[in-house]
Design a protein around this nucleic acid. Structure first.
Lengths: 344, 344
DNA sequence: ATGGCTTCCGTAAACGTTTACGATTTCATA
DNA sequence: TATGAAATCGTAAACGTTTACGGAAGCCAT
């Protein structure tokens, strides 16, 4: 069922059919009606390859999400709602969104090169941004529209949206200090992911703002999953003077940390204060429920989509290019996992 | 950088370039060498649209995963590893894999129609199969190669791979009976997803095999997330004679159930036995650790890919079509969440 | 020397669209 | 009636590939 068949059936030229379907002005309203009707009747859907070839645009956007061993187990819970939000915007513009997962056995750069080289997508959303991210320089020099979820130290002019990890760390520190805690630990990702730097930077600044000196022994790098949280707790227990509070970079670490403390007979929320990121269905059902930060991932996705569209020539009129760099604020949700310090 | 540019630069025809790149036999080894070298030098990657248009095949496979509200929070942890496995197979055949997430505000049928109509993919992997799944009949009549993750009651001839939920339920029941439990509850998805039927069927059969009559009051339908587990526990607590054991369809429900029992002062593993599905990083770090079932999701993905390839004409020679319907066995991993019954 | 076979390569058509351009008709206006 | 503008539509080229077909050259056996 090609446009040619449709034209033959209607006894008009394929050019007219195409114009009718694409809403061009120079076509009789009556014939347009006939074309649209026939198209619906035969279930005609334009062949994307033919269209792409002619227009040089594929009408699809790629969302590159990581699937590393480290985060494979929990990454999905984060990305799904974001994806939803992105898609809700793109659908309005007839853009299809596909998720691109680079396998762990393939180099992300090579993967990206193949995807981009094939002219597979018109634009890209990049996540899990590294501090030095070769993907960014690659896309910049190829002039492919993209937006990153997570800022980066990589140079160049490109839009990004980032969660306010600095603010999260600062808020958590301030809260714990107010509770009377003095030795506040922090669990950060061991990888080169940029948010780790931002997170610890916020932590450091909040401490110094309150006149507390930064102690590198209180920074615990770990994988950002349950196993990492378990290791953080183990490391904390091994210290001469155990911290009385800990801030974690996600909720999966909290589960592992809870476990280790459970084994040691230490009760989070009573014997030690825990603040995590991010509020989720899980965080509300842990025992104790986790003090964490709320964010609408769907809204985040919407913003991401809009930021990307603002850099794509065909859409830049609808989405002005002002202030596309954005630090996403988050609201603290108190749980049972932290509270006043009543230790020695 | 098109094939034409490449040909011009090498002073040969574009036909020869194409043949050289595609490994056809009728091309001088020496010129092939030159072509390959130049292609690499200029970073030439064939335009997928042009290729698709000519060949009628897109070299991409779609993996349709659901993103419903219910499972958005935990679905990712399941799919990511499966995706990895699928991709590892497809990469060997130069096939690109993309994840297709149908938004919650769009009808899955319409979504599929658009994707298929555009000739976007050569084949599809369908997951979260419903008991009556219109997607299946649609793909069958369109003759699009596909494989489903999860069997279905929908008629027709198509390959599927399913986890052995029937076996899981049976094994769990047998184990709990051996522990002396008599009133064994089961938490099942409230939706029309097919695995719910299979799950409860295995439960029912295992009971009758052991001479225990099936009690519908012990079947608790719920959303398969933390909140659902919480509700199951609440419903259990409300019964005159509370069940002494419960089998859950996933680990997220276990977290919610744990929470509700925690609030009621009831300790899973001591006061009530819990068996969940599926072993994950999480299940090992819950307190108590969850008795559940192990499965290699990556291997599952590999099998899915092979099953799909066996139905695609271009690959059917490498992947024979025998026995593509597969029930995936799973191994029980004992945890702390169940044990002998020492109640009244 | 002729014929036939092999090897290698160029030519051109085809895939399904979109769109610039020109042709035809209509219609109001001078 | 002649003229020009507006409305509508058909024609054909172009996008980047692949591939069927045929031609040219080289080689060997007759």
């Amino acid at each position: 069922m090609s446009i040619r068949d449709l034209a033959r059936h209607l006894n008009i030229s394929i050019g007219t059919v195409s114009r009718a379907l694409n809403g061009k002005s120079d076509v009789n309203p009556e014939t347009r009606e006939r074309v649209l009707l026939a198209a619906k009747e035969f279930g005609y859907v334009p062949n994307q390859s033919g269209r792409s070839l002619r227009q040089g645009t594929t009408n699809t956007i790629g969302f590159m999400i990581e699937s590393s061993i480290e985060t494979a187990d929990n990454g999905g819970s984060f990305f799904m709602p974001v994806f939803e939000g992105v898609q809700s915007v793109f659908r309005r513009h007839q853009l299809d969104l596909v998720a691109l997962l680079c396998g762990t056995d393939e180099d992300p750069g090579a993967y990206l090169n193949r995807i981009v080289g094939r002219r597979f997508v018109d634009g890209l959303i990049i996540s899990a941004t590294m501090r030095n991210d070769p993907r960014i320089t690659f896309l910049l020099e190829r002039k492919i529209p993209f937006v990153t979820l997570g800022r980066s130290a990589t140079g160049g002019q490109y839009p990004w949206i980032d969660l306010d990890f600095e603010g999260v760390a600062a808020t958590a520190v301030a809260r714990l200090l107010k509770f009377g805690h003095q030795r506040i630990a922090i669990g950060v990702p061991a990888s080169d992911i940029n948010l780790g730097y931002v997170f610890v930077e916020g932590y450091r600044r909040a401490l110094s703002a309150n006149g507390i000196s930064f102690d590198p022994d209180l920074v615990f790098p770990a994988n950002s999953n349950e196993e990492g949280g378990y290791r953080v707790a183990t490391a904390m227990l091994a210290q001469k003077q155990m911290p009385t509070a800990v801030i974690l970079v996600n909720e999966n670490m909290a589960i592992g940390l809870y476990r280790r403390f459970y084994e040691a007979g230490i009760h989070p929320g009573r014997d030690i204060a825990v603040v995590g990121f991010r509020e989720s269905t899980q965080s509300r059902f842990l025992s104790p429920t986790l003090t964490c930060f709320r964010i609408s991932l769907r809204d985040l996705g919407i913003k991401l989509a809009e930021a990307l569209l603002s850099t794509m020539p065909a859409f830049t009129s609808n989405y002005p290019q002002d202030s596309i760099d954005l630090v996403w604020p988050m609201e603290l949700v108190p749980g049972e996992s932290d509270g006043p310090w009543h230790g020695t």
